[in-house]
Simulated scan of single mutants.
Amino acid sequence: MSTTASPTGPLLSLRDVHVSFPGRRRRARTEVLKGIDLDVRPAETLGLVGESGSGKTTIGRAILGLVPVASGTITFDGERIDTATAARRRALSRDLQVIFQDPYTSLNPSLTVGDTLAEPLVAQGGDARATRARIAALLDRVHLPADAAHRLPREFSGGQRQRVAIARALALRPRLVVCDEPVSALDLTTQRTILDLLLEIQEETAVAYLFVSHDLSVVRCMSHRVAVIHRGRIVETGESAQVTEHPEHPYTRTLLLSAPVADVAEQRRRRAARAAAAGDF
């Protein structure tokens, strides 16, 4: 991780955040997040890692106002946002954006790339000339050709579509981007190029990332700090090297054992060790 994070106070803070969903057929509500405390500092990447169903995506959705917070507070740049009105949420989109897992479903298939990138700019009152210039700059920023603006999402590969999604997230020059499993739908080679692009963008713009993933090896290469979530609770937080090389919580150790390796015997040993550790948490 080459980017140096700012030592200043948090840009985003979650304090004792609880989220619950209605149960089926009059059953009690299911508590998905159970007292989450997290901070993301300016220009920092906080990696949030956990298995499927751990609650990591729900944290991102709560930050974006897509699910209601039952209790606790979420603040952005000192302003409480978990109770923000719809109008305030629209205004916050200038500073707070998201990159979703599947770039194909997150892009409108009937809009050209240029129209997709123009939408947030026009919504914020940009004139036609400034919008065209910004679209050209965004395509260059994500290493796509200028003529990409005239094409539809289906004409691109998965990696190229994710570049378009990144460009859209950057359109309004946000200060923080929630990256929700942004490379998990891509092959390994393409994953590496997209991760390198995100690091390059952060180096040049000082944007902060909340990087959500199930893959601790990906989080390790992207993050200044790492938070591990298990069954709706943060079980370990610390500097990236500390958490990924010397984990303290048994669950974090099982995530490390889940990382694939080329050696069949080592993979078998890890599988056995993971199964043995499952009863520790």
Score class of each variant (00 low, 15 high):
R89P: 01
R90C: 12
R90V: 11
A91V: 04
R94I: 11
R94N: 03
R94V: 12
D95R: 10
D95F: 06
I99W: 01
I99H: 07
I99P: 04
T105Y: 06
S106T: 09
L107H: 09
L107F: 08
N108A: 12
N108I: 01
P109K: 00
S110R: 15
G114C: 11
D115G: 02
A118H: 10
A118L: 12
E119L: 03
P120C: 11
P120K: 05
L121H: 05
L121M: 01
V122Q: 12
V122D: 07
A123W: 01
A123E: 11
G126E: 14
G126S: 14
A128G: 15
A128S: 15
R129M: 11
R129V: 15
A130T: 06
T131W: 05
T131C: 03
T131Y: 06
R132K: 13
A133R: 10
R134T: 14
R134K: 08
I135C: 06
I135S: 10
A137C: 05
L138N: 12
L138Y: 11
L138R: 13
D140A: 15
V142P: 12
H143T: 08
H143C: 07
A146D: 13
D147K: 09
D147Q: 13
A148T: 02
P153M: 14
P153L: 14
R154T: 03
R154Q: 13
G159C: 13
G159F: 08
Q160F: 04
R161E: 09
R161A: 14
Q162E: 09
R163K: 14
R163M: 04
V164G: 09
I166T: 07
A167K: 06
R168V: 00
A171G: 03
A171C: 01
L172E: 00
L172T: 06
R173K: 15
P174G: 05
P174A: 04
R175V: 05
V177R: 01
V178L: 14
E181R: 07
E181K: 02
P182F: 10
P182Q: 08
S184H: 01
S184R: 09
L186K: 04
D187H: 12
T190S: 12
Q191G: 04
R192A: 15
R192F: 06
T193N: 00
I194L: 09
I194V: 10
L197S: 10
L197V: 11
E200R: 09
E200Q: 13
I201D: 00
E204R: 12
T205Q: 10
A206M: 04
A206P: 01
V207L: 12
A208V: 04
Y209K: 02
F211N: 13
H214Y: 07
S217P: 14
V218Y: 14
V219E: 13
V219H: 10
R220P: 13
M222E: 09
S223H: 02
V226D: 03
